[in-house]
Amino acid sequence: MGKLSILCLKIILAIATAGALFVQFGMIPMIIFNDSPGTGAERLVSGSFLAYLFIAGLIIEACVYCVWKLATRVRRGTVFDPASLRYVSPIIFAFVIGALATFTLAAIFASSSEIAPGIVLLIGGAGVLMIGISFIVLVLRHLLEQAAQLRTELGEVI
């Protein structure tokens, strides 16, 4: 990866972090303060959605931090060091937690008569995609482990 592509990646990561922070500390409080009180079921749906948004922001921020650190290691040429693995595992766990939160939100929405079944299905599908992403990152983690091991072995040969 060249310097320009790393710079572009970091700009995108900074924008994603700014967006997540804006939603967490700007939009969610604004919705809470301006939301009209409703019935118990409406409050459950609204509250669970707002909690989900906050958790999603935390997950995005954790992933951005780890990808930022990995991009820095790529730029320095140290990404194949075994120490890089400590930045990959949190991404896997973040997506698993995100999938569990998504499935929980879908279950809460399914119990409400106000949410269309198609919406619940779409949310469940997003949870399945998150599980798929976590498996992809797990495979990439194993590839990084193998590359780090090969680099160590080549260093011993040379």
Rank of each mutant, 00 (worst) to 15 (best):
I31K: 14
I32Q: 09
F33Q: 14
F33L: 11
D35L: 11
D35R: 10
S36R: 09
S36V: 08
P37W: 12
P37Q: 07
G38D: 08
T39F: 10
T39Q: 01
G40N: 11
G40H: 03
G40S: 07
G40K: 06
G40E: 11
A41Q: 08
A41C: 01
E42S: 12
S46W: 10
S46C: 14
G47K: 09
S48C: 10
S48Q: 14
F49P: 00
F49V: 06
L50K: 05
Y52H: 09
Y52I: 02
Y52A: 02
Y52T: 11
F54D: 06
I55T: 09
A56T: 12
G57C: 08
G57D: 05
I59M: 07
I60G: 10
I60A: 01
E61G: 02
E61W: 15
E61R: 04
E61I: 15
A62K: 15
Y65F: 15
Y65R: 07
Y65P: 03
W68G: 09
K69W: 02
K69H: 06
L70T: 10
A71F: 09
T72D: 12
R73D: 15
V74D: 14
R75M: 06
R76H: 12
R76E: 15
G77S: 07
V79S: 00
V79I: 09
V79H: 06
V79W: 07
V79R: 05
F80D: 00
F80K: 02
D81E: 15
D81Q: 05
D81P: 14
P82V: 11
S84K: 08
R86V: 15
R86M: 04
R86E: 11
Y87I: 07
Y87E: 07
Y87T: 03
S89W: 03
I91V: 09
I91M: 05
I91S: 01
I92P: 02
I92Q: 05
F93V: 07
F93I: 08
F93K: 00
V96Q: 00
V96L: 05
I97T: 14
I97D: 01
G98F: 02
A99R: 09
A99L: 06
L100G: 07
A101C: 08
A101R: 05
T102A: 00
T102L: 00
F103I: 00
T104V: 07
L105A: 05
